[in-house]
Amino acid sequence: MKQTLTTLYRQTGSSYRKRVQGMGTFGILLAFVVICLALALSTPRFMTVSNLTIIVTQVSINALLAFGVTFVIITGGIDLSLGSMVAVTGVVAALFAHPDTYPLIVPLMMALGAGFLMGGFNGLVITRSKVPPFIVTLGTMTIGRGLALILSKGRPVSNLSDTFNFIGGGQVFGVPFPIIILIVVFVLCSLLLRKTIWGRYMYAVGGNEQAARASGIPIAKIKMLVYILSGLLAALAGIVLTSRITTGQPNAGQGFELDAIAAAIIGGTSTSGGSGTMTGTLIGALLIGVISNGLDLLNVTSYYQQVVMGVIIIGAVVLDGLNRKK
């Protein structure tokens, strides 16, 4: 033991073993597959390339927001300002995206900058004051809606350049561009959460903030980081949405935050913090998309769709709770 302690104090590391990980999302994946099979059997229009492409494209905006809010919920917080940030950043992007004005990079950077600032504002108020994230982001939600109306003077901002409109409507080798964005962002977010120290710190902060602090983890920085990430991903969603509907809509994105939070929760992210995965959230978002698409195909009215969605959200959390008890 003496010698090994010496080794420890000189350098640490060097042993090999693979680990098994990621069984937590198995249940939701199974549910997803079952529902897809059921829909495929009940309507032939479901399992077609064009329909599946439509689903994923429609899901992409919600998924981007859900990735952001997954970071936030893992640290034990919540972000209700997502929908408003989508509107603000969408309007900002549109204002700089008129044809023959600025190169494409300008509207993109302006929108991301706006998302960064709004997320940073959330993070700053939450870490500096002791006001709960629920209240702070509820305030930012209203502020953001107002800002979007001010910036757009209350009217939709239209006449956008073709290059800008490519982001939401274009295709690369037949794949809609939003799907490509979705995949790239998913991979980056997954890596950040699973492979970096910041991802690990997010779990620690949400799991037990006091213990995280005592382990020397910079709590405030991690919280700033997650709200900024949430803002940046909301900006990306705002860009994709504005580009797809070819207009900056100050009223866009209402209620988006709830769909995003629902995707994260269905995907197994615990609202009390400390657990959750990007894969789970992605499946959660896809599940929401598949169900509303499938119910459309089965000619179920949207009124019933809302009831079904609500039941699924509650069911997912109940199942999660039962699982935990075991």
Binding site: G13, S14, Y16, R17, T196, I197, A212
Partner: peptide, 20 residues
């Protein structure tokens, strides 16, 4: 948890040295 930086490069955790 308290020494995670020792096993990371550019913020990415090296799984083997952490496990070691």
């Amino acid at each position: 948890l308290a020494s995670l930086k020792h096993y990371a490069q550019w913020g990415f955790i090296e799984a083997r040295s952490e496990e070691g």
